[in-house]
Computed example of a mutant assay.
Amino acid sequence: MSATGYLKRLGRRLTEDLDTLDAEEISQESKAAGARSAADCVRGEDAVMQGELRSVETCSKAAKTGVAAEFFDGSGTVTLKWMGRHRIPGIEPGRKVVVRGRVGEKDGRKVMYNPYYELLGDE
């Protein structure tokens, strides 16, 4: 490894926006695992994606009972919705997951209902 390459990467990490660096890191991990990127998924398609949960909320209104999470893989976001659940152990912000399911669309946003999921790491 050359010293100039190392210094260039170090300088970039010290000066670039943290959100951009975070997105690049998550995207690289997803590609390395062979997962599909959220940006490339289209409505009606079965997909396997790897990324992290940015936010998680529970809806307890009668018609909207469930857990909703914002999944981010560095390329885009997908809303994950588990219907009929009040809480899912391990589904929390910052957690890295692999999700599998059919991509849908609601209000112009990508959504995946009741996806299969696998928790990664011990975060």
Results as ranks from 00 to 15, higher is better:
S2R: 09
K31G: 03
D122G: 02
T20Q: 09
V42Y: 03
M83I: 06
Y6C: 06
S30G: 14
D19W: 14
K110M: 07
R36H: 12
G101R: 08
C41M: 06
A35L: 05
G108F: 03
I26D: 04
L14Y: 10
G76V: 04
V111G: 07
L53D: 01
R87Y: 12
V98D: 10
L7R: 13
K106Y: 12
P93G: 05
I91E: 04
T65K: 13
E24C: 05
G5L: 02
Q50F: 04
G5E: 10
G76N: 06
R43L: 12
R102K: 04
A39M: 05
G90K: 01
R85F: 01
R12A: 15
E29T: 06
G76E: 02
A47M: 04
E29F: 10
T20F: 13
E57P: 02
V48D: 05
G34P: 09
E52L: 09
A63W: 12
G51F: 04
R87D: 15
C59V: 11
A69F: 00
G34N: 06
G104Q: 01
I88Y: 01
R87L: 15
R102V: 11
M112G: 00
R43E: 15
M112I: 03
L120K: 05
D46A: 08
L18A: 13
R87N: 15
D122W: 00
T79K: 10
L120N: 02
A32F: 14
L10H: 14
A33K: 06
K81D: 06
L21W: 02
C41E: 00
L7M: 15
V103E: 00
P93M: 09
R100E: 07
K106E: 12
K110H: 11
S60Y: 13
K110S: 09
L10Y: 06
R85L: 02
G76F: 01
G104W: 00
R36V: 07
M83L: 13
R95K: 08
A35D: 07
H86N: 11
G90Q: 00
D22M: 12
A3E: 15
M112D: 02
Y113G: 06
V67T: 02
N114D: 13
L18R: 10
C59P: 11
E29V: 11
I88V: 08
K31D: 08
R54T: 10
E105K: 08
Y6E: 12
R43A: 14
G104K: 01
E70L: 13
V103T: 08
L7E: 15
G44N: 03
L53M: 00
E24H: 09
A38I: 08
G51L: 01
E57I: 08
R54Y: 04
R85Y: 00
V98L: 06
H86P: 03
P115V: 01
Y113M: 10
G74M: 00
L10W: 07
V98I: 12
E16A: 12
G44Y: 07
R9K: 15
D73K: 04
D17Y: 09
E16W: 04
V98H: 08
F71S: 05
M1W: 15
T65G: 15
K31E: 12
E52S: 10
L14E: 01
K96P: 02
G51N: 02
K61F: 09
T77F: 00
